[in-house]
Amino acid sequence: MSGKAFLVDTTKCSGCRACQVSCKQWNNLPGEKTTFFGGPEYTNPAELSAITFNHVKFFPVDRSNPEKPVWTIMHKKCYHCEEANCMRVCPQHAISRVEGWVVIDQSLCIGCGACVNECVYNVPHILDEDVKRYGAEGIIKKDKSYKCHACMENPREVPLCARHCPTGALTYGERAALVKRGLARVKEISAEYPHANLYGLEEFGGLRTLTVLKDRPEKYGLPVGEKAKAIDLAKAEAIRDTYAFLSIFTFGLPSLKRVAYRISKSMVG
């Protein structure tokens, strides 16, 4: 895999959430309405959403060694899989690869939820109401799928999420160089964290958001092995075909489209 990538280093993240806010600023995304923390510790909102493309997850503190409690804080955005489920199952071919990044063209998106259903990382989301973009003209449209586009739609040398990171926990660069750096970091911390690893080398044919983890990926809800393999191409095509048939009965209603997609998937299943 050539081209650019992000490297997330959970050993350096202090949880300042500059990434989460910077993304909203650059992309004019509105803030979410929340009442209390949506996830563990300060996590808010609970997950990525159609208007939150960068997310910081605070895991509960691990006190198994009372001398050295471990608090893991992890940046999350689209992993931009090399073999991306969302791309494979999108009936409209609205999801494509631009400079290696997986991006959605909302003008083609029909809000069927195929990508939402197939992404094991829970990355793309369908917007359920029109939202006015903050401080700029226009709106983000209801019933379209949204997620991180690696700022391919307004490209700069380094996307703002990575450039604003004060600790170097989120960096951007050539993937090959970041893999090298990530592996070196894993080696550096392996005395302190024996299960440390660089996540994203193999999963879904290789990810463009690589993550230095202190412990096994499962601990952070990240799939490995069989669970991190892309949907079979033939199966994806069968789902698409079934959906193409069923969608006739959805009367263009996004909620029914999503139901139809789920039925298609279980029929092929």
Binding site: E99, D105, Q106, S107, E137, E153, N154, P155, R156, E157
Partner: peptide, 24 residues
């Protein structure tokens, strides 16, 4: 330099035209 457009041309990114930045 950091503010410069990256190597690719932005307009070429979306053949379909209307993209996330519709309206801008």
């Amino acid at each position: 330099d950091f503010l410069k457009l990256s190597g690719m041309t932005a307009a070429g990114a979306f053949v379909g035209g209307a993209s996330f930045l519709t309206g801008c």
